[in-house]
Design a protein around this nucleic acid. Structure first.
Lengths: 225, 225
DNA sequence: TCAAAAGTGTTAGATTTACACCCATGA
DNA sequence: TCATGGGTGTAAATCTAACACTTTTGA
């Protein structure tokens, strides 16, 4: 490795987080107004820089923790965004990650401190730099993932009704889902367990609460939705 | 953007190329023995560094061109590989890309000059750093992609027989394919055009040659294999 | 008593899979 | 003449999609 080349090609490396949440029947993304120049005041993803002493994945975990106070979130890499002029200030290459969180796990005080908001994915404002592309790509990847892996429960509280779960799938896919077909498929998934708890907040009659059974999922990786 | 943070977090950025080819019925990857310390002599992907004056995608295109002499190859990002110790010499974060080429477009003289070889994906040797992970991930992505987009023709000569195409799908998926069902599906794809040319190199009887029709594909993006 | 969400099966159509023989040719 | 790869269709099984009414209960 030549020192010459090293010096020549070193660049700033950042991570940007696309944090998905599900609330009031809508898929939402956590974004805030940028606090730095250039681009101060524009809507932006939350991000951070990659330190010398941490892997890129660790930088993303750390950044997520800074923002949410939560660890061990479900997190996947979206990819590297490396256009020369993507950051108007200086050459910065950014690795985007998406994460899934249960909105209710997120302390609202912390949210306000960081001055970020849950914005409906259907109503995204214009955004700083290439952040909209990042969100678009993250969403596509997440849509793919949710078809082959049961990640949906990461966006829901521990106990949830089938209607909530259906609304989540509708919000992610962007398309309505047939109730009976949906419930048929869920019934076949052994890792989604019916409990005998009943939720009365969503209806007068009340709906059974379900929960994700991790053990069954790990044994039996045959799943699809 | 603080200069302090900038200096703190600048890292070397490289690109690594997973170049897929199809030859003698097998999916192959172009790899060579590493010429630099550390790791000299280990099997390795071909790569290069990202310059200040080029996007990461451009760095990958340039690196591909250096190696193959070919431009406008089909190329997709695999992702960023950013473990701290992935390069034993220095902190280097690498963005991997996979590319598809028609083996016969690749000048064999150039190949020898760069001292790289087409290795059957089933017989990969132990490799330098995380290069095997890169190949594994690239292969998975390519397998997914080929199901929804007609990229197979990028691995074949302009004219090809249905048997060649079938062997390619088998090599990519790693599973045998039923001949009649395969041909049925191909017939429905309007962007794969039968010509009246006949190839007699593969059999005594001869087989019709087909070609990809880009125009039809662009009009009619309904495809799946 | 009625509005609102929960819950429940069946059928037609589409898609996918399995499967076997004849053809043309050069050696 | 025979070994080799090229080419062809049908039927069963599976999966997917469409569809409407009854139940419970709080207001």
């Amino acid at each position: 490795m030549t020192t010459f080349y090293s010096e020549f090609s070193k660049v700033l490396l950042s991570v940007d987080c696309i944090i998905f949440g599900f609330d009031a029947g809508q898929l939402r993304v956590l974004i805030g107004k940028r606090q730095l120049d250039p681009g101060r005041g524009e809507w932006s993803l939350y991000g951070g820089f990659v330190g010398h002493d941490e892997s890129v994945d660790d930088a993303a975990s750390r950044t997520l923790f800074e923002l949410t106070g939560l660890r061990n979130l479900y997190m996947r890499q979206v990819g590297a965004f490396g256009n020369i002029d993507r950051d108007p200030g200086e050459r910065v290459v950014s690795i985007a990650y998406y994460a899934l969180i249960n909105v209710k796990d997120y302390d609202d005080k912390l949210r306000k401190e960081h001055d970020v908001e849950w914005v409906n994915i259907k109503d995204l404002p214009p955004m700083y730099s290439d952040h909209r592309d990042m969100i678009r790509k993250a969403r596509r990847l997440m849509q793919q993932k949710i078809k082959t892996e049961p990640i949906s429960f990461r966006l829901l509280p521990e106990y949830f009704t089938l209607t909530q779960l259906q609304r989540l799938y509708e919000a992610v896919s962007g398309e309505p889902v047939d109730k009976r077909n949906f419930r048929k498929r869920i019934k076949e998934m052994e890792f989604i367990e019916k409990t005998d708890l009943i939720d009365k907040t969503g209806s007068k009659r009340g709906a059974f609460l379900y929960k994700f059974n991790k053990a069954v999922y790990n044994e039996d990786p045959i799943f699809k939705l």
